[in-house]
Amino acid sequence: MSDCDDRALIEAAQKDPLAFGALYERYVDRIYNYIFHRVGNVYDAEDLTSRTFFRALSHLADYQDQGYPFSAWLYRIAHNLVANWHRDRSRRPVIALDEIVARSLSEQHPEVVTEARATMRLLREIIRTLDPVRQELLVLKFAEGLSNAEIGKILGRSEGAIKSLYHRTLLQLREEMEKRERGER
C-alpha cells in the first residue's frame, strides 16, 4: 500500500467520484478499527465511519497532497468526528471489548479467563482516563499497528516526540495499574 498507489487512486477519484470505491475498500477497516476503539461501541463506530467516508467523498476535490499519507487525512476527519461525538455526549468512551477478549480466551480455564477479563477491564478503564492524545496514540499504535513516524504525521508531532510520549504513557499506565491494585482509587 504505497503512497504512489494512493496518489493514482486519489487523482482518479478526483476526476471520477465513482473511483472513490477503491480508496474506501483500502481504508475502511483501518478507519472503522480506529473509531471503534475511540468510541467503544459498534453502533456509533458504524455511524462515525459512514460520516468519515461521506465527508471524505464530498471534500475529496479539496484534498491536496502535502507530503502526508492519504490515511493521515482520513484519520484527521475521523478524529474530528470522534472529538465532536465526545463533546456532544460529554462522556467518556466505553470500550466494550469484553466479548472479544472472552472469545480469544474461551479455550482456557475459567479462572484464567475471569482474571484476564478483570485485568483487561481495569486496563481499559485506565486507558479511558488518559489524555485524548495519549488514547489516540495507543489506538493508532496497537489497533492500527502504525509506526511512530506514521503516528507523528497524523498527530502533527515529530517521531521523537511520539516515542517519548509513548514511553511516558506506558509508565503512566503502569503506575495507575499499581495504584488501583493497591486500592488507592
Partner: peptide
C-alpha cells in the same frame, strides 16, 4: 491485548460501500 484489532462487520462494510457508490454516482 486490550486494544486488539477488531473486524469491520461485513454487512455494514458492504452496505456503506453501496451507499458511497450511489453518492459518488
Amino acid at each position: 491485548q486490550a486494544l486488539a484489532p477488531v473486524r469491520t462487520p461485513p454487512d455494514f462494510r458492504r452496505y456503506l460501500g453501496q451507499n458511497l457508490a450511489l453518492a459518488a454516482w
